[in-house]
Design a binder for these strands. Structure first.
Lengths: 215, 215, 215, 215
DNA sequence: GCTTAACCGAGACGGTACGTCCCGTCTTGTT
DNA sequence: AACAAGACGGGACGTACCGTCTCGGTTAAGC
């Protein structure tokens, strides 16, 4: 809705409108303690290990206070996961849009296949039954990712390598939606080969090319 | 035992390995009663309304029996939902692959945006944390859908309209993965316009086309 | 340990030893505001409606301040209730001790059966698990009542109508203890008829009278 | 098992109407386990030590099950306390009604002044704010006591020692109500001397006796 | 009239217990 | 033998108050 697009943009601007919670020195410390404990729990047992009671016990933050800072445990986990992952964003630069995008699809595919990818899937799934947590996931995780891909796309547009009529949002979803689909439903594996097949087909399109040329 | 999903892929072979449960006349009646009750519950309150206790009470099937037929409530819901939806599959035939596929993306997008689409999202999400239910969802729902799209794709391949080097599985995921992504994360709407933007970009590819023409 | 019985005994003497709190003009205003808010809460929902948070919000007095004036919310409620009820004490004067005491038992029984009687029971009960509040209840409520009955009793003693060997405390407990017992445990109703039965038996004793006359 | 309601009337007749809970061998064992654990907790810390969580942990009975057997923790405590105390009822037999009743008042006064008396007071008080528990307290504790006193009273009536016009319920409340009042409010001590003063005044009445002799 | 110290409001916080929900297992008795 | 009925242990939920503890901001007395 309103999230600023710059890499360093502070969430303090209240993106999505409602991620508000107590402020002040003490509250900030409490907030961080809860996020740190939640990260540990995610590492140890994924999202299922993240229960409100566990966060409270591990962090020393009381349950009532947790509910004053977040609408649900999923929201805490989304913020904790998003904040940590924000550090690990590294964009490829191969010289061509084709190369950059294909590489990025490969990277994201590998990420999804990793343990962190499992957590990503659990969070994504949890947001379906926990609408209050969805904004947290979008703001603290998805948003940063989409911004990063946006940089790649803009670069490609400036170079004239991609179709400028295509919205970046559409492009992102076409490249990564297939990976998400597979991650969630598990109907196909997430291997580098599959990643290349997907990026290849997405970049060049599904329709026959020779038909436009000659033949 | 289970609904045959397509001409060649018979689930009777116990696909995915473990969809077994008691047989016999009495058991069959019990099985159907549970599925019927589950359908009602899905209609009334979506997946959250489907609890083992509710199915048992509504269907007259005891909880112990339910656990002999299915590994979890999500599995029951997946089978119930899949069976019902199997009746409503109708493939477009516009005369061109481009038209058929674009229309199908529009239809699926509309389906996802409907109440049934909400249930679909809930089931998909539930499968993440309930691995035992995932096969049921694939066999009783996804499989039929993919087979149907496969028919469209084969037709297009025979006509020479699509790139035959692209695997049908890849094509399916590129066309519908973006919709699934949006359905789950809610970061973009599922309107007909968006559906067309996606199918357009997917069919023609993200890279600039003029490059193929001249230059 | 117990409250002095004299009519003029002012609470300012700090009976029971520990009913101390900040003084000064500002504090007095705060004190009154809290009592007023507590009275309102008692009217609206009885003692259960009296929570420290509710008093604070309603009165504008902060929780920390409340704890500087009273040891617990029960103490506030006891003082608020006692102060208000102090205005409503009216002693019967029928001409005979028998009539006065019987009428008083009837009046108290009716009071116990009224909404205010419910609050009385709640306060009495609360003092069991909140020893810090008991002095407040005794000083601000019970004391006044016992003093009033003491007036009746003294009058009767002077008239020679009652047994002067019986301590006024004993007499009070025999006349009103039964009512309190019923109020708390609810094993018998608090009707005027029952009140008369109790006062009658208490005044004349349980033993057979004819036996003393004849035999 | 339970306080006899009358020589032969079994509580199974659902006294007070609603003390129902699951039956069957397993349930009976669970019921007993909960009561035993509650007794231990009462011994260790009185009613405040009886929390639903504590009963559950100590007895191995789950919270949900506890709530299927009793409406509240107070009800459990009342039943546990009542059942245990039922064993300790011993009636005096001094030869005269006067002696029997005075002795009984002394005994009850001593009981109230004992640790068990504290628990009694806590239960009585708790029933005020927990109406669902009151029937349990009446059925499992008060009733047995009142029946016992009733035996004393009947004996006295048959002997012609007490006024037959006085209902036994009234007599009981006059003799023991004062003790209960003192126990709860703490305005006077519960010593043997006070007990005798009370029973003396109650048995002979508050009015002057010389009037019956002459005049 | 100006400090300055006591008092206050606002409210966040840790803690304890609550009563509920649903799961998956197990027992009992029936058909 | 398979089933209905349903009790049970377990675990997590979200809420309600409590009593304590910072923070700043007002008084209102004493200098």
């Amino acid at each position: 809705m309103s999230a600023p697009m710059s890499p360093e943009a502070e969430p303090a601007r209240v993106p999505e409108g409602i991620l508000v919670h107590p402020t002040g020195a003490r509250s900030r410390r409490v907030h961080e303690a809860a996020l740190r404990a939640t990260c540990d729990l995610l590492d140890e047992g994924g999202l299922p290990a993240v229960t409100v009671d566990a966060i409270a016990e591990r962090s020393g933050v009381s349950k009532a206070t947790l509910y004053k800072h977040w609408p649900s445990k999923t929201a805490v986990a989304a913020e904790a996961f998003g904040r940590r992952m924000a550090e690990t964003v590294a964009l490829p630069d191969t010289g061509t849009a084709r190369g950059d995008l294909a590489e990025q699809v490969r990277l994201v595919s590998a990420f999804y296949a990793s343990p962190a990818g499992t957590v990503f899937a659990q969070l994504l799934a949890a947001c379906v039954s926990d609408p209050g947590a969805a904004p947290y996931f979008r703001v603290y995780f998805l948003h940063g990712r989409r911004v990063a891909i946006g940089v790649l796309w803009e670069r490609a547009v400036r170079r004239g390598e991609v179709d400028p009529a295509i919205d970046v949002e559409t492009a992102i979803d076409i490249l990564f939606g297939p990976l998400v689909f597979r991650l969630i439903s598990g109907h196909r594996p997430l291997t580098p080969e599959e990643a290349d097949a997907i990026s290849g087909a997405a970049l060049y399109g599904l329709l026959r090319h020779t038909s436009t040329g000659a033949d």
